[in-house]
Amino acid sequence: MNTEIPIWRIKYYPRSLNEFCGRDSIKETLQQIIKQKNFPHLLFIGSEGIGKTTLAQLFAKEFLGNYYDTNFKLVYANVPLSDDERNQAKSEAYISTSKIGSIAGKRITTPAFIQIKVKPFVQLKVIGDAPFKILIVKNFESLGSDQQGFRRLMEIYGSNCRMILITTKISNIIDPIISRCQIILISRVKIDRFKDLIIEIAKNESLVIDDTVIEALYKVSEGKISKAIDLLQLCSISGKTIDMQKLYEHSQRFQNDLIKNLLLLTLQGDFPKSRELARKIISNYKYDSHEVFTLLLKELNKLPLNKFTRNKLINLIADSDFRAIDGRDIDIQISALLSKICLFSEYL
């Protein structure tokens, strides 16, 4: 077997805090914490794909040292539970033994996610010589009202297990959680550190790349390192020299063309076909309705349209996204948007 890792983003994945690219002030704070061997619950905030989880994980690894494997867990709040897990959570519900008060004799259920993924870990005592366990909860905002369940958990089991909550949207986190955590803001990597990293990779893979191209790469990848590395690898297939033209060509291909196609098809006014395509995209990528709407909006802004058309389309997308918040059937909401765009296309 080839020992060389063929996927670059995995190959150049940082193995320690020092290797992690840029963000020196945050790294310093974290290193300070490691020295003190103590920290409160943390809340990592930053936009998508810039390395929050990587940072949190590397931090936990260095904090726990040898006891990392047994005292660490990473859970994804946005990945739904399987049917079996759901059933298990249901079967673990119990009837309150309290004889007075509002919960007397009622069936007590804990939110399934907490019951299955979180509670068993935080209840278990620390194994080995670590000061406490570390739990990372990714996409914490997607828990919605289940966040309430974390309030007590963080207090009761706080001495046993510290949590690092990771989120992209601070506005969706409830206040009691924010007040229980130390907030750490994570910015995207600065361009000069990004350059250093890319030059190092280029050296390793014997690529030829100049400064202006790296700057363009930074722009195209929006400062997301894994995305930049992906793009670099794609470009490298057709030769070791990487120039502007290649970069733009690949970044076009690399981006999700399906949504753009969907938008174009809909603007031609064929409703049944565009609904078919939308369903295909959703079932392939398993997007939820909000994701589809934001992707559509993103693609819309790239299309050359006059300002009235653009305004009208944004209005339609916003309206549908708004309805989908309470709506129960995302297919209806997405079909509604498509049908309205189809109608609108007749006036173009």
């Binding site: 409703f271 309805r323 989908a324 709506g327 209806i332 079909s335 049908s339 309205k340 296309s345 007749e346």
Partner: peptide
């Protein structure tokens, strides 16, 4: 929702129907 395009063909009709259907869905939710 599934059968709407089978019975309604004009884009204006489809859009009107969906305006109502999506509002109904929102209300139900």
């Amino acid at each position: 929702n599934e059968n709407l395009p089978t019975f309604l063909k004009a884009n204006r009709d489809i859009a009107n129907a969906y305006e109502n259907l999506s509002l109904a869905d929102e209300i139900f939710g």
